[in-house]
Amino acid sequence: MSDPTGTTHANDVMSDDQTGRDPETLIRADRLREVRQAYEVIGRQIALLRTLDLEDTHPSVIFRPVLRRELTDDAG
């Protein structure tokens, strides 16, 4: 699927000290505490998922090289 916004530009990405963002998360530093707090409920569900032993199960999203004849100008 193509990105319909067409709004991604290198100029958009400013350095962290210019934006006042936490360098690790890119979240605005003054919001980091609130965001982490809100994430706690979700984090508990993800922590439960981590306890599941998936042994040799592969991820469902797999990279697949595309044959030349399958390529079109727009296909991902």
């Binding site: 984090g43 998922l49 981590r50 991820p59 999203v61």
Partner: peptide, 15 residues
């Protein structure tokens, strides 16, 4: 805040 390994654990779970 979601880590890469959490994301892949989720994709493995889908399988």
């Amino acid at each position: 805040l979601v880590t890469g390994s959490d994301y892949l654990q989720a994709e493995r779970y889908r399988t």
